[in-house]
């Protein structure tokens, strides 16, 4: 352990001040589930670390039909909220009980694939992130926040402080597929949201996890769905488009070939589940 100073600020203002005084070499952690394994292994060797556990960003509040989620809200808190069921489901399928008690919703946006499953659901919900630093506050669409593998739009002097989820427009489905049922890294995660006017799809989101450098939107698949009535042909075409536009990788869990095949399958299954669900509700 190379840490010589560990700061535990008690407010956001203190945290922002510490960051601007110590600069980008100050490692910021929240739940510790991403950083501590690297530190324990001696891969990350920080000298100064700031923990966000006591800054008071761990509240979930309803807001304009949606949610405002503090960045250090634990995954367990997200699981227990009842406002957005897809987020509860995404949290439920993430990691294990103990890890959910520690890991945070904000931290999940920094978790490299094949983790970071909550980010996939947030992406399908058009979530935006709030970034705050000594130069002020700005908001950014989540799709603009994750810029590459392990990289984000966060500036050196900024902190991620919150996630805004607009009122959920349309129906949603969330499917996580791993090699096992509980506490599993993803082969692929699929989150879909479809808004319809009668039978016709007016807006669609297809978000994919573990098949790219970060959570991705399958925009070609979305384009296929808009204007369709979710008929089997449209679903197959969207699934095919998603499989083509994803950027899967090889790792110890699955090969790129297998991941692409599973994108095709689980985008289809997610859309079929959504159709069935709507049919049941409509009766």
């Amino acid at each position: 352990m190379t840490v010589v100073e560990y700061f535990l600020p008690r407010s956001l203002a203190q945290a922002v001040d510490l960051l601007s005084r110590h600069g980008p070499d100050l490692l910021v952690i929240a739940g510790g589930t991403v950083a501590m394994p690297l530190i324990n292994d001696g891969i990350s060797l920080p000298r100064q670390v700031m923990g966000l556990r006591f800054v008071g960003l761990d509240e979930i509040e309803p807001s304009d039909g949606g949610l405002r989620i503090g960045a250090t809200t634990t995954l367990t808190s997200l699981l227990r909220q009842r406002h957005v069921p897809m987020l509860a489901e995404a949290a439920r399928r993430t990691a294990s009980w103990s890890i959910r008690n520690m890991g945070t919703v904000g931290g999940n946006l920094f978790t490299p694939p094949p983790g970071g499953d909550v980010a996939v659901a947030l992406l399908a919900l058009d979530a935006e992130v709030t970034l705050e630093g000594s130069r002020g506050r700005r908001t950014l669409a989540l799709s603009e926040f994750q810029t590459g593998f392990m990289t984000t739009a966060l500036e050196p002097q900024e902190l991620l402080t919150g996630i805004g989820v607009p009122a959920v427009a349309g129906e949603t489905t969330y499917v996580k597929f791993g090699r096992k049922e509980a506490n599993t890294p993803s082969v692929v995660t699929v989150a879909v949201r479809v808004a319809r006017d009668g039978e016709v799809v007016t807006d669609a989101r297809v978000a994919l996890g573990a098949v790219g450098p970060h959570a991705l939107r399958a925009r070609k698949a979305e384009a296929v769905l808009v204007g369709s009535s979710l008929e089997p042909g449209a679903i197959d075409e969207a699934a095919e488009a998603a499989a083509e536009e994803c950027e899967p990788f090889d790792d110890g869990i699955a090969s790129a070939w297998y991941r692409r095949a599973m994108v095709r399958l689980f985008v289809r299954r997610a859309l079929e589940e959504l159709v069935q669900h709507v049919a049941l509700e409509g009766r």
Binding site: I43, P112, G148, F149, T151, P213, F249, D251
Partner: peptide
């Protein structure tokens, strides 16, 4: 160094991201 103990996917993916950016 310590970085070498990570899966090569990490270094390669990160390098590709930084090059693309």
């Amino acid at each position: 160094g310590p970085l070498a103990r990570l899966d090569s996917r990490f270094a390669e993916s990160l390098a590709n991201t930084l090059i693309a950016q």
